[in-house]
Simulated assay, not measured.
Amino acid sequence: MWQKIIGWFKHLFSRQAPVHREENGLWWQEDKGTVKVGLASRVIEELGDITFLATPTVDEQVDRNDQLIDIEGGKAVETFKSPVTGKVSRVYEGYQDDPTSLAKAVDPLLVEIQPA
């Protein structure tokens, strides 16, 4: 019983930043000084069989509205722009190695950026 009450208080007072969802399917969230960027599952589904994924490399500088993610599926090719200016601090390379695995993920996180 106490654990439920403690969990409720933790949830009540936790200050998780909102997830920003853009019309094109890109989502991003600020988290402890880092901006996490991913794609909505619906976009991946709409693209069909994913055959190619390109993202910047770690330590690469990106500007707001620069090309950030390129993804190619059986039905279309899409390019997504960076929501912020900064330096790429992490790339989730498992998706680079096997782009088809994107279809199995829910709103996959692809890149983390340290804002400038």
Results as ranks from 00 to 15, higher is better:
residue 68 L to M: 11
residue 51 T to V: 13
residue 58 V to S: 14
residue 4 K to R: 10
residue 53 L to Q: 02
residue 99 P to V: 09
residue 86 G to E: 02
residue 27 W to G: 13
residue 106 V to G: 07
residue 7 G to M: 08
residue 32 K to M: 11
residue 94 G to F: 08
residue 68 L to H: 08
residue 1 M to N: 06
residue 49 D to F: 10
residue 64 R to K: 15
residue 91 V to F: 00
residue 65 N to E: 12
residue 65 N to F: 11
residue 79 T to R: 11
residue 46 E to S: 11
residue 26 L to I: 08
residue 64 R to Y: 15
residue 48 G to R: 02
residue 112 E to S: 13
residue 40 A to T: 11
residue 86 G to S: 01
residue 17 A to C: 12
residue 114 Q to S: 15
residue 52 F to Y: 10
residue 41 S to E: 09
residue 95 Y to R: 02
residue 34 T to R: 07
residue 4 K to L: 09
residue 61 Q to G: 03
residue 34 T to D: 05
residue 44 I to H: 04
residue 87 K to I: 04
residue 106 V to Q: 09
residue 111 V to K: 06
residue 62 V to W: 11
residue 38 G to C: 11
residue 112 E to K: 13
residue 93 E to P: 07
residue 43 V to A: 12
residue 76 A to E: 05
residue 58 V to A: 12
residue 48 G to N: 03
residue 79 T to G: 04
residue 89 S to A: 07
residue 87 K to P: 00
residue 50 I to S: 05
residue 42 R to P: 10
residue 73 G to R: 06
residue 95 Y to G: 04
residue 40 A to P: 02
residue 78 E to R: 15
residue 76 A to Q: 06
residue 19 V to G: 02
residue 90 R to Y: 06
residue 24 N to A: 03
residue 2 W to E: 04
residue 3 Q to L: 05
residue 54 A to D: 05
residue 15 R to D: 15
residue 60 E to F: 00
residue 96 Q to W: 09
residue 51 T to A: 11
residue 35 V to M: 05
residue 101 S to C: 08
residue 9 F to T: 01
residue 68 L to G: 06
residue 37 V to T: 05
residue 82 S to Q: 13
residue 106 V to Y: 08
residue 6 I to S: 03
residue 11 H to K: 12
residue 58 V to W: 09
residue 21 R to L: 08
residue 3 Q to T: 06
residue 48 G to C: 05
residue 54 A to Y: 05
residue 85 T to S: 13
residue 30 E to Q: 05
residue 74 G to C: 04
residue 17 A to H: 07
residue 91 V to M: 01
residue 100 T to P: 00
residue 41 S to T: 13
